[in-house]
Nucleic acid binder design. Sequence first.
DNA 1: CATGAATGAGGTTTCATTCAT
DNA 2: CATGAATGAAACCTCATTCAT
Lengths: 218, 218, 218, 218
Amino acid sequence: MEPVAIPATARRRRKAERPAELLAAALEEFACRGYAAARLDDIARRAGVSKGTVFLYYRNKQALFRAVIETAVLPHLAAGEALVAKDDAEPEPLMRALFAGYWRVLGDPQLSGIPKLVMAEAGNFPEIAAYYHEQVVMRGRALFAEIYRRGVARGVFREADPALMCQLALSPLLFVCVWRSSLGGCEAGGVDPDRFVAEHVDMFLRGLMQGTPERSSS
Amino acid sequence: MEPVAIPATARRRRKAERPAELLAAALEEFACRGYAAARLDDIARRAGVSKGTVFLYYRNKQALFRAVIETAVLPHLAAGEALVAKDDAEPEPLMRALFAGYWRVLGDPQLSGIPKLVMAEAGNFPEIAAYYHEQVVMRGRALFAEIYRRGVARGVFREADPALMCQLALSPLLFVCVWRSSLGGCEAGGVDPDRFVAEHVDMFLRGLMQGTPERSSS
Amino acid sequence: MEPVAIPATARRRRKAERPAELLAAALEEFACRGYAAARLDDIARRAGVSKGTVFLYYRNKQALFRAVIETAVLPHLAAGEALVAKDDAEPEPLMRALFAGYWRVLGDPQLSGIPKLVMAEAGNFPEIAAYYHEQVVMRGRALFAEIYRRGVARGVFREADPALMCQLALSPLLFVCVWRSSLGGCEAGGVDPDRFVAEHVDMFLRGLMQGTPERSSS
Amino acid sequence: MEPVAIPATARRRRKAERPAELLAAALEEFACRGYAAARLDDIARRAGVSKGTVFLYYRNKQALFRAVIETAVLPHLAAGEALVAKDDAEPEPLMRALFAGYWRVLGDPQLSGIPKLVMAEAGNFPEIAAYYHEQVVMRGRALFAEIYRRGVARGVFREADPALMCQLALSPLLFVCVWRSSLGGCEAGGVDPDRFVAEHVDMFLRGLMQGTPERSSS
DNA sequence: CATGAATGAGGTTTCATTCAT
DNA sequence: CATGAATGAAACCTCATTCAT
């Protein structure tokens, strides 16, 4: 009950940097192991602290995970919302910019770990799933829906079920983000994700627009 | 204490059916819990046998899982290969038939659990991933590639990187299969998967073909 | 994740005796350490099994504890209820018999550990406290109340608040049961509990009865 | 970063009050959680200092607890000893005054936490138990013994084993102090402790005295 | 063949105690 | 003097795997 004296090792002391270090370590471990399989112990070691220290900053594993989402994903959503809020752009370039924004997260080998693992383990962790769905999925979709609505209003995009279009638009990006850290690891030189996504965006927009847009040079 | 006498035939019958019962039980548990979270205990109970019995038929959890893949997924691949082997069909209807075949697995709420979980947990179980990649992914792609090659040869499909096309073709299907058992659970009446896939196939084929095909009636 | 082969040591196998062994071990550990401080590990070791085995029989620490109460205490209550159910006895001897019954539990160095620890830790484990209060305290009091009521009806006991009388009657017994396994350990040859209780019962009954009963020979 | 300047006098004042604040906080936490379950962290927070500061004033948890006993309980004992030292009073009123003194501690919801927890956890902390037994129990008993001796000498109290009488006298009071913060919490409007103790004192004195004392008006 | 009791490594979480600042 | 970040032992609990019966 009363622990023995601790050999006075060199303990680092940096309250300010800790959360960031912890978050980075957690992101990495969560991303490559998944939520359930990630061990707090490994996260701690990677961050250069002891197991107990993690609990000084986050109440438990789930809280840590939420914090990872908050710092890694939410800012990108905010950026997307800012983008869309600027009213002036043409629908098509705006849509392309939105795709670029999505891809900034979903295409980043590091960040894409988050959506991947949420999809992977949502079934076993309903609270996390609900949180992510509300904070990320819904907001992410709203961006698309808004731009699409404007495009339809201006007669640039053909009219269709927005939810369906959204899914068609995003599913390949989400697929890549899942694939990359799963079976993608089994193939040496597969399809280049960037090229894949570029191709998808072109095809998708061609299918979406009334007239025929120029294909972006590749 | 004194075991009730079981007629030898009944015993024999049980014995013959065991693997199938076990496999069915395992499929269900793996599909809804994932590989790591599925408990052998539950699988056994669901199959109506004791935990120890599982190990009589399968060396360990992993072997059981491989067997599940073998019986649940491989036959569908073989069916696809048979389809393609019949040389005579036009590329476009053949391609549509192939999509239907993919969807028979990926759209089935039960079966789709397998690809979903393989993608979800590949990172933590490299052997499983390698096995699945070789036995399922590669063969699945070969089907597409073959039909695509024929279409190009006949001038029906435009020429492009086959691997890229394959990914474009399949990613929405794979996405649905992941989404359904993850964040899809958070939304009440989302996009109907069948409609979504039908729409995708139409769009994809329109983008793939030189001329403009008829849109399938929806 | 997959444990290594276990050196085939001699594993005992006795499903039937296990619960009793476990309960005995648990009673002992709980009684001398208290609920919170008792380690499942020690209970297991004392019962001659490994840690995990405990959870095969009891869902968790609390369930084990409830089982201990059930097997160690409740039968004595039932015996008391049976005693009172036999309508015929005179109130005074019946009351003396009841005291004897209380004392059979509260005076037993082993069994008295239970009430002691429940009182000691009720504050930190409200569920346990509520369970014990309902299953033991209330029933134990009802016995007293019933006999007292009869005594008053027959004019043998003086009339007073039954709850108050009950507390006056029982508090010294409960005190002994607490004291014995706490500060009682600090005094070599203190007051003999049996004598103490006998004295209390005499004094209490003398105070309770209208006329003056004979003092029991000591 | 730059600590705000604190006037030296204010600092000094704090310093002087620290132990008392700490002790008060500790008393409260110990009383309602018990020794083992009380967290230094909470004590520190309640006292408005940091965890580390506690260790500046008390070597460890146990030392803090001893200090709590010293300041909360010992003065009352000293008061009792002063009372008894004044030789002149009649035994019966003196005994009643002693009971009142005991009850001042044991009936105080705050202070009674101490004896309660010592009894509750003595088994796990023998040093504390020994200390308490010597410093509190023995001295408390000596008070009773002295008054009793005088009463017997004057022929007011009947002759009996003083240790036994002491236990009979005190056990209901100690019982209340245990019960109150344990299973007493499970019952809404139980017996009023003050009334219970008054009743006990009357009954006890009646049993103790040769002649019949007046019952105190209730 | 089948059982299911038993195992024990390993995971998360708590908290008294230390010590650099 | 005071702080509070850091530590790590230890507790509870899960579950794949083994093996006597």
